[in-house]
Nucleic acid binder design. Structure first.
Lengths: 143, 143
DNA sequence: ATTCGTGCAAACCCTTTGCAAAGAG
DNA sequence: CTCTTTGCAAAGGGTTTGCACGAAT
């Protein structure tokens, strides 16, 4: 049962990756994971739904949402909260942050080359840091 | 040119502040502004609605939402996008950023004492920076 | 009279949920 | 066979909108 390598990872590789994260591998989950991991990109649930069902009807809306939430909980993907109207998901890669075009909703990455953590303020008592997000909101420089 | 420090909260002062931002002062808007500017706090639209109508019925839900959007557009308040389920509003004060408790939804400020802008990456061609938000997501240190 | 602001309810959109059927181990 | 996952549709919750009424110029 060796499947085609469509986007750089074989089905088996993805299935193993899911199991490594404590996620039962199913057809739907593998295909959703394939989309999320395929490129360095940010996708909304709606985009995942659209991409995963190219021409066919493989995954329902509910499953997409539930799966994305599951993936995020298991640490396979990261939720990006920058747009008040929807959540973006991206593969969990190295430290990088985002430009967010407030007019178009477009999201772009940038890497940090400075020691971010050293500059962080003191974390409140009894709290541990889950993550640090920097969002640079931009817009087209108006003429 | 008006001095706009947010501690005095007489109706006249607030009305003047609104006008300074190009906002027609009405009773409802003044009362909403009073809540937003009263303390250094973050409030959701729902909380504004609740606070502004203490015991009476002064402002409708639609007006709260429309007014908050107007205030944000006019630069009187800032939207804080950290919670996927709702938008927070805060007075536009000096540079500070946020701790966000991912479990409780609680939002806390912290000031930056380092020159943030100098560390920023190159802004994409033709883009201008609207703002920079740093969100430190925290949770109660595991029991 | 014309323009702007407000209120109400309904509409909207993204997201979650309840429950029955299909799939995994 | 038992437990988990999926699908469908419906509900949910925050936010926006359409339209009539009221206030201001």
């Amino acid at each position: 049962m060796r499947k085609m390598n469509l986007h750089g990872k074989t089905t088996t590789e993805i299935a193993d990756l899911l199991r490594d994260h404590g996620i039962t591998a199913t057809l739907q989950r593998v295909e959703i994971a394939r989309i999320l991991l395929s490129k360095k990109q940010h996708v909304s649930a709606e985009q995942v739904l659209e991409k995963v069902n190219k021409g066919r009807s493989l995954v329902s809306k509910a499953t997409v949402y539930n799966t994305l939430r599951l993936f995020a909980a298991k640490g396979l993907v990261k939720e990006v909260i920058v747009d008040p109207t929807k959540v973006f998901y991206e593969p969990k890669t190295n430290d990088h942050h985002h430009f967010f075009n407030v007019d178009t909703g477009e999201l772009t990455d940038f890497d940090v080359d400075f020691p971010l953590v050293d500059n962080l303020p003191h974390t409140p008592e009894g709290m541990s840091v889950v993550g640090v997000d920097i969002t640079v909101r931009v817009r087209a420089a108006h003429a």
